[in-house]
């Protein structure tokens, strides 16, 4: 009986310690998870086709309107949509010239991913959008800038395709970044999309 009485407080102490240890561990895990709970959308804009760009920009402006922080990462074919329509940049090698020549010069030269029909489908969709008063890519980019949507451009895609910074549009606080930047943003975002 006496031994039982003596061991009980000991056990009580042990449980207190283990509970405290468990609590500390849980605290740490919650803290690690919290950055992922930011009200933020990270989106990869990969495809660079008219329909997918429209979807990207509508979601981006909509999310910004909902009070979310929005970061768009333009990579691969998406980067061509950020080119200026009239930039003529010299000092390119043959491959870069070919990419420059074959890829759309900016967002108003991109085509539909389906039903393009030699450009007829794209022209028809643009006509339809005008008729329905749907915002154009120009308007959506302007609005995104006003709403503070951030645009980051994949440095490696620029390099691969031989795009120079002089031929990329002016957009507030645009940055040239690598994959780590995207992953850091994606890690703290509640929402991530790939288009």
């Amino acid at each position: 009986m006496t031994t039982a009485v003596q061991t009980q407080p000991d056990q009580g102490l042990n449980t207190m310690e283990s509970v405290q240890a468990e609590l500390a561990e849980l605290k740490q895990r919650v803290e690690a998870l919290e950055p992922g709970q930011q009200n933020k959308l990270s989106m990869i804009v990969f495809s660079g086709e008219l329909d997918k760009l429209l979807a990207s920009m509508i979601i981006a402006t909509g999310a910004a309107a909902m009070g979310m922080k929005v970061v768009l990462f333009f990579t691969f074919w998406g980067t061509a949509a950020l080119r200026k329509p009239d930039a003529n940049v010299g000092g390119k090698d043959l491959m870069a010239k070919m990419f420059g020549w074959m890829l759309p010069k900016g967002r108003n030269k991109v085509k539909l991913s389906k039903m393009n029909m030699g450009g007829m489908g794209t022209a028809m969709l643009k006509g339809l959008m005008k008729k329905k008063n749907a915002p154009s890519l120009d308007q959506l980019f302007d609005m995104a800038a006003q709403l503070g949507v951030e645009i980051k451009v994949c440095e490696m895609s620029m390099d691969l395709m031989g795009f120079k910074r002089e031929e990329i549009i002016d957009y507030p606080n645009m940055e040239y970044v690598g994959v780590a930047t995207f992953l850091a943003h994606a890690g703290e975002s509640k929402n991530q999309l790939f288009l």
């Binding site: 309107a65 909902m66 329905k132 008063n133 915002p135």
Partner: peptide
């Protein structure tokens, strides 16, 4: 005004 304009405007 179609989507996404109404929500953008109210915000």
């Amino acid at each position: 005004l179609p989507c996404p304009m109404p929500v953008v405007k109210i915000s």
